[in-house]
């Protein structure tokens, strides 16, 4: 308890109590309790609220089985629909993360080491300002941009590149663009922070020793930026896999995001239990996936949190 005494002495008793309470409140009420409720829900039979806590609200694994085997009344052996959506969501999230990484690394490098003074600040500002607009509105604006009578189609048809408007929405291009854009800042800023701390002389030294630009990045800049890259990738991957607004608004009629199935469980099928089970499955899979990737690329958790 020594650290607690030091903590109180350093901050003064009122502030220390406030800090301690708010952190504990945040951890228990906002994170741990809701998650525990979800776990609990996911492990119980789906009964209407009045029967919650009665004998019929018993523990079961049926909701976890559902994603694999589907409904017992169905003729299919496996629940290919839900599993397919689950896999497609993960693969899509991986691709969106990679696209973001490829887009954002050069931007972050440019901001950190090339752009000078006012121009750099203007660029950062123009990256941030669009995100003052609500996520749903931004998704709708992409729908307008990519619509059959949207600016992009009008332009492409206007210059004669296309004979007739291309259906970006049905072909999921609007969705990919929207998702890629949605979390771009969460990729740029961690990379920017880590690249920015690189000593400019190291880049010059590598160049002086004869290195072409790509090798400078490969051997000097990227290794230095690895914690930022991992941190950005983790956040973008997690958030993309868990995105709801962009897939609901920009997704084509045939594409379904896993979060949409979870949403249906809670809001349309009134099956909170299955919704919870699916949400837990998504969360655990994402965490395991991120940990495995970190292991492969030899990144420690502490580095990401820096």
């Amino acid at each position: 308890m020594n650290w607690l005494r030091t903590f109180f002495r350093r901050n003064g008793t009122p502030l220390a109590i406030f800090l301690l309470c708010s952190v504990l409140f945040w951890m228990f009420m906002m994170i741990i309790l809701p998650q525990l409720f979800m776990v609990d829900f996911s492990l119980r039979a789906n009964v209407p609220p009045p029967q919650w806590g009665t004998d019929t609200h018993s523990y079961t694994l049926e909701h976890y089985k559902y994603i694999v085997y589907g409904s017992s009344t169905s003729t299919d052996q496996f629940n290919t629909l839900d599993m397919g959506v689950f896999l497609r969501t993960l693969v899509a999230a991986i691709f969106v993360t990679l696209i973001d990484l490829i887009l954002c690394y050069p931007i972050a490098y440019y901001l950190a080491h090339v752009a000078r003074g006012g121009w750099g600040r203007l660029m950062v500002l123009s990256l941030i300002v669009p995100f003052w607009i609500n996520e749903i509105l931004r998704a709708f604006s992409f729908k307008v941009l990519f619509g059959t009578t949207g600016i992009i189609n009008n332009f492409l048809v206007g210059i004669g590149f296309l004979d007739q408007p291309y259906d970006f929405i049905r072909n999921d291009i609007a969705l990919w663009a929207g998702l890629t854009y949605a979390y771009i800042l969460l990729m740029i800023f961690p990379i920017y922070n880590s690249v920015e701390s690189l000593d400019r002389n190291q880049i010059d030294a590598a160049r002086d020793l004869g290195s072409p630009w790509w090798r400078i990045h490969w051997r000097v800049v990227i290794p230095h930026a690895k914690p930022g890259i991992s941190s950005g990738c983790t956040m973008v991957f997690m958030l993309t896999a868990g995105a709801l607004a962009a897939p609901s608004i920009l997704g084509g009629p045939s594409s379904l995001w896993f979060t949409q199935i979870i949403y249906q469980g809670f809001n349309q099928a009134s099956n909170w239990a299955r919704g919870s089970a699916y949400a837990i499955i998504l969360l655990l899979t994402c965490i395991v996936f991120v940990l495995v990737v970190m292991k492969v690329f030899k990144v420690r958790l502490g580095e990401i949190a820096r």
Partner: peptide, 21 residues
């Protein structure tokens, strides 16, 4: 002719060794 193609090598004031190698 850029620094990577000149027959010179520079030792920097702060040395600029690569810390991750």
């Amino acid at each position: 002719i850029g620094p990577n193609r000149r027959p010179t090598a520079l030792i920097f004031q702060n040395l600029a060794l690569f810390p991750l190698m």
